[in-house]
Computed example of a mutant assay.
Amino acid sequence: MEKRAAILSAAKALFIRNAFAGTSMDAIAADAGVSKLTVYSHFGDKDNLFREVIRSRIQDLLPEETYFFDPQADIEETLLRVALTHARLDCNAETVGTFRAILSDCRQGNPRYGKLIWEEGAMRTHGLMERLLQQAVDAGKLDIDDVPHASVQFITLIKGNLMMRQMFGCTECPESYAREIETTARAGVKMFLRAYLPR
């Protein structure tokens, strides 16, 4: 397990820094302090290793508990918990660095790597968000006809244009950017509730 963790840690750093195409299994093995054979024995091939890196990273940062629904809790507080966790993660420099690496590979004709991060990242988190919203609807906390569509709306509202600004390097002051992330997430939750609270 220690070797597996070391390989995942090395792969995370190298994929972010060099993108998929620029990262070799030799480099991952060297950084992890293991043989290349050990890397292959744990993960099979580079595609599988990349998928595991994405899955591990997202589960570390957005564990399933983030989307826990308590019918006794205030729905605004529940949504705010999710919103702040999501927005802070999606808009931070490391996450955006990962997206840049994926986009670099897609431009070089490797769209399957973008598909991997979509499946392990966005599809998973949207599924968990849909489950939470459906539970809230079933408990009478929200009134939503199209839960999958509302899930996309929620994720979009809480980030605004902040992730794109980070993508283009337009976040000169980290302190004010962090405040904007929180303000945008809170405003997004309020707007979402204005649309979906039971009348």
Results as ranks from 00 to 15, higher is better:
3 K>W: 01
3 K>Y: 00
5 A>K: 14
13 A>I: 02
13 A>M: 04
17 R>F: 00
20 F>Q: 00
24 S>L: 06
25 M>S: 05
26 D>K: 04
32 A>V: 06
33 G>E: 01
34 V>K: 02
50 F>A: 10
50 F>H: 10
52 E>T: 04
52 E>Q: 15
53 V>T: 11
54 I>Q: 07
59 Q>P: 00
60 D>S: 13
61 L>Q: 07
61 L>I: 02
62 L>I: 12
62 L>W: 08
65 E>M: 07
66 T>K: 04
66 T>S: 08
67 Y>P: 00
67 Y>D: 02
72 Q>L: 12
73 A>M: 11
76 E>S: 09
76 E>D: 07
77 E>F: 02
77 E>W: 04
78 T>R: 02
78 T>S: 09
81 R>W: 03
81 R>V: 05
83 A>I: 04
83 A>T: 03
84 L>A: 08
84 L>M: 11
85 T>Y: 02
87 A>G: 05
91 C>P: 03
91 C>D: 02
94 E>K: 13
96 V>H: 02
96 V>Y: 03
100 R>E: 01
100 R>T: 02
101 A>K: 04
102 I>V: 15
102 I>F: 08
102 I>E: 02
104 S>P: 01
104 S>G: 14
106 C>P: 00
107 R>S: 11
109 G>C: 07
111 P>Y: 07
114 G>L: 13
116 L>T: 15
120 E>S: 06
121 G>P: 01
129 M>L: 15
130 E>H: 10
131 R>K: 13
132 L>Y: 04
134 Q>L: 13
135 Q>G: 10
137 V>E: 07
142 L>W: 10
142 L>P: 04
145 D>H: 14
149 H>E: 10
151 S>T: 15
152 V>K: 12
153 Q>V: 14
153 Q>R: 14
155 I>R: 10
155 I>G: 04
156 T>K: 08
161 N>F: 08
162 L>A: 09
167 M>S: 10
168 F>V: 12
176 S>A: 11
183 T>H: 12
187 A>L: 11
187 A>P: 04
188 G>K: 08
189 V>K: 07
190 K>Q: 13
190 K>I: 08
193 L>F: 05
197 L>N: 11
198 P>F: 06
198 P>E: 06
